[in-house]
């Protein structure tokens, strides 16, 4: 009887393409773009070109990983860009104590923003979009206060090395982003916290009744997102060689949300696609690079990005109404 009812909703031949597209569409799109570039873009396969692409996308990937978890909890975090700016602003203040203390403090600041966001969402009960909007605006303001509104050059050797150095030909930033993707993937798939997070995002009332620590899970998720965003801010600062709180992380929240959505994580929560998110960030990066390489203006690239987002959201909708 079960099978019969399922089949009447949508015949398998209709449901499968939609589902495949939802599950693997983003990887296929990345693959297609790579093939296109191999064929038609000069020097695409050269190490320097690939390297530039990956270095550029790394901070987006890191911020998007945190965003994916927050979106999986049926929330959204608009403050990631501002947290990047805050981290950037804090770095020069404490770099005198050495590389590690300064980075640690920057990450703690990101975590604190997460505590505030998570508390507003889970304890006060604000809608995530409103709660994190406050810190989107306030966070960058605070960052500019910390930095006196100035761009400050970074002289710490370790920090600069973090931005430009590499291990076995792979830039540190790319390495870090890759490792984090693996770690977050493990956290989401295999830890109690990760599974509770997905359950809370899927049905908060049921999770509460099942005795899950809903508040703790939500606050933890926003903290994790804040720490990741702060790390993205540190890496961006290191690569730039300067702390520029007015520019770093601008509109990053939107890039991160885009990567998550294009990667197939539904905005309705209850599902987190880590690999999809990485692919989503790569796809958006490749689209822009491809168009610019072929002499289309940045404005055209933006419009095409908009088109991709629309398609991704449409496919996600297809699945929900299944």
């Amino acid at each position: 009887m079960t099978e019969a009812t399922v089949k009447t909703y949508a015949p398998p031949d209709r449901i499968r393409p939609a589902r495949l597209l939802q599950d693997y569409g983003v990887y296929a799109a990345v693959a297609l773009l790579v093939l296109f570039n191999v064929a038609f873009t000069d020097n695409f396969l050269q190490a320097a070109t690939l390297r530039t692409q990956l270095v550029q996308v790394a901070p987006v990937v890191i911020a998007a990983l945190g965003m994916a978890m927050v979106i999986g909890s049926e929330g959204v975090d608009l403050s990631v860009g501002s947290v990047m700016a805050l981290a950037a602003a804090v770095l020069p203040l404490y770099i005198g104590y050495g590389f590690w203390p300064a980075v640690l403090i920057a990450l703690v600041v990101g975590g604190l923003v997460g505590v505030v966001n998570g508390t507003l969402v889970s304890v006060v009960g604000l809608q995530p979009i409103v709660a994190t909007l406050a810190l989107l605006v306030g966070g960058r303001g605070l960052a500019l206060v910390f930095a006196d509104g100035q761009l400050k050059g970074i002289k710490d050797g370790t920090l600069l090395e973090l931005g430009t150095g590499e291990l076995l030909g792979v830039p540190y930033t790319v390495l870090i982003a890759g490792c984090l993707a693996v770690v977050i993937g493990f956290v989401v798939q295999r830890t109690t916290y990760g599974r509770q997070l997905v359950a809370v995002g899927g049905n908060r009332a049921a999770s509460h009744l099942a005795g899950l620590p809903v508040k703790r899970v939500l606050i933890g998720t926003y903290v994790l997102c804040g720490v990741l965003a702060a790390l993205a801010g540190v890496l961006a600062t290191a690569r730039l060689g300067a702390s520029d709180p007015s520019a770093i992380g601008n509109l990053m929240e939107l890039s991160a949300i885009t990567a998550v959505v294009v990667g197939g994580t539904p905005l309705t929560g209850g599902s987190i696609r880590v690999l999809g998110t990485v692919a989503g960030a790569l796809l958006m990066q490749l689209v822009r690079a491809t168009l610019i390489n072929h002499d289309l203006p940045d404005s055209a690239a933006q419009m095409i990005q908009a088109g991709i987002i629309a398609v991704a959201v449409y496919i996600a909708r297809e699945r929900r109404t299944r």
Binding site: V198, A199, G202, N203, A205, A206, L209, G270, S271
Partner: peptide, 8 residues
């Protein structure tokens, strides 16, 4: 509404 987590 309060029992199953549909996506799991």
């Amino acid at each position: 509404a309060e029992g199953i987590v549909p996506g799991l």
